[in-house]
Design a protein around this nucleic acid. Structure first.
Lengths: 212, 212, 212, 212
DNA sequence: TATGAATGAGGATTCATTCAT
DNA sequence: CATGAATGAATCCTCATTCAT
């Protein structure tokens, strides 16, 4: 886990509250810019301007343009996790929880599609250590599904070989992200609800199938 | 389909054979550079140098740096299709053909992982028309699987509701590409063969399931 | 008159006083460079260097090299007008005013010969709108002479058919500019004073001629 | 007169007839290009292409791009002289000859306005020696008028102080060229014929005036 | 002679970052 | 803390000229 800890960006400013507020402004501005123009084609001047302050001030709160990308990626993951947490409710059985979690995840992906795409397309521009951290947060989301699967196994509502738990969790992530990546192809033929329905059936069919 | 036709890049050179040869050199050099440094951080001089000629010569065969990206994307898709074609053999049943096609596709993804990633990460840097063309080629690969599914339906070896054919095809693409996108997570737990096996079972179980 | 208004060049700098000062530096440097090497053979780096700052700073105050040419042309016309204004004194009669104005104009042309030549030789490198504006300023100078001629007609000191006023004014400009354009030929045979004397006589003879 | 002799451009080709023919092609193509785009913005490739042969062939007949400009200037002067010669007819008196010569010159200027402008705007791009030669040819045209004036003095039809002959000749050239340089202003108010009429009257009035 | 592919110096412009005020 | 002018390395692209075929 070396190097995967949250990176703290050095600052010239002392007041932590101010730092937090300013960085929020920066992220807010940068997310939109990165989405519409890409990381490389966005200038630091634009970021500063959209953030509402000068280029000099921007550099009081970051050390390099890449720091902004890092802040943005970190923020997006935070937002992802927050929305997942908010929408997830413990149900009776693990199977039901899973069913609902898949739905939630797919909807979150739909809402944040541009941002998810952004991370995938620009992550390579991050320096090594920050990149690892970002990938680590990605895994954290996978673990949400792993835990639900484990619970379903424990309460008997899901039949999964324990060694397949990780693959199942990955598959859930995958199907959610695919709604983002291949939207240009999928949306021609399915609504989000149809997609969730079809994919959930496919996934759970086996997991809940009772060989009589 | 307007505007999705193959773009032909203007040239200062007349000999078509020479153009083909030089552009091959360019693509060969650029693929590696783009993979290791990304499109934006690769300079035209580096491309020229790695191609084995001067910057002036490079610009005899392209009009802009973006043309190189287009050539690279086009080449990668060509390579993808070629490898798919080579490895696909018609089997007895549609179900068997599908099983084999999935395996082939996953292996091609494994071999060309960096290149597939490259397309996903840099496609947004293409101008509008070329981008459309590249996406069109992506769809062409999906259609390979659609045809196999149709065949399986026809010969009775696959039970799929015709309206789900597109989703199924997309799912196959998805699972192949996920081996690329999430390799950092998946490879910790599975070999490619295990992955193919597990995913194929998951997909085909329903399609071939006989409700007795 | 559409599009012939003064063009205001966009800037990255906010302080208007600084802009004015820096642009003055730019013009000062560029005039000399353009005169000795021509617009095309002068590099932006040379302009920046001679202006006393870096290439980056140059581009804080202009958007393109052509902007520099525009600034230069505008400055030259300003200087022309200023010197004309300074030297012009209202005399008793229109005829006397005219006589003096011709002398002044010829002297101004003599002093600014390189700059006048510069405008004639490089104006075609300006984009359309700025070119129109520059030509408009040229006309403004002609109008100075038109006004004097009108005055002479009014006070009876000049006999000119009103329809010839414009031609007369043009002729005055012409003879002044010719001292610039054909200096290589004229200076072999005349001093400026001789030239003024001869040309004034020629022009005014008719205008003041009393048909007895 | 050192250095003002006709420059002969070195060639890789032996056959003088071929050289003449090719250079004619070059000049024909270059004149149009230089007029519409200016010397600096015209590329040698364009010149070669418009001339009807390859860039390599172009360089068989010239040594540098500036040679083309020289050929063009030389050609224009030749054309000017030819047209003057063709149209000039000896009249009875020097005064009549002059009157007609002015008319001819003004018409030639009208016909060749773009080319005259071209010389004035691009001559500074010539190397030193060729420039001198071009200016020398300019003087040759002035001399045509000087000779006519001398003849008029000799036959008594013109009253000119011999020391003013050169200025008079220059003035004639000037008024012709001004129809070119200031056409944007003059054409608003006069036709060419009106202009010739007015200027001729102005010039000749004094020269032919009989102080009775 | 004619061709046209190859060359690379050179030029305009951008933009992340710094630092004096 | 905030500002924004200054910097200059870096980048894309052009084009006159050469030379092997």
């Amino acid at each position: 886990m070396r190097g995967a800890g949250k990176k703290s960006i050095p600052t010239l400013v002392k007041d932590p509250q101010l730092i937090a507020r300013r960085r929020e402004q920066i992220v807010q501005a940068a997310v939109d810019l990165f989405i519409s123009k890409g990381f490389h084609k966005t200038t630091t001047r634009e970021i500063a301007h959209s953030s509402g302050f000068s280029i000099g001030t921007l550099y009081e709160y970051i050390e390099s343009k890449e720091d902004v990308l890092y802040l943005v990626c970190d923020h997006i993951h935070g937002e992802l996790e927050k929305r997942m947490q908010e929408a997830l409710v413990e149900s009776q059985t693990g199977a039901d929880t899973l069913r609902q979690a898949i739905r939630v995840f797919a909807h979150v992906m739909e809402q944040m599609d541009d941002q998810v795409l952004l991370i995938y397309q620009e992550i390579k521009s991050l320096p090594n250590e920050p990149m690892k951290y970002v990938l680590r947060r990605e895994e954290a989301i996978t673990e949400i599904f792993e835990r639900i699967l484990q619970k379903g196994i424990a309460d008997g509502s899901l039949q999964v070989d324990p060694k397949d738990v990780k693959l199942m969790a990955q598959n859930i992530i995958i199907l959610g992200e695919m709604w983002v990546f291949r939207r240009w192809a999928l949306r021609k033929h399915y609504t989000l609800e149809e997609y969730i329905e079809a994919q959930t059936n496919l996934l759970l069919q086996r997991l809940t199938h009772h060989h009589s």
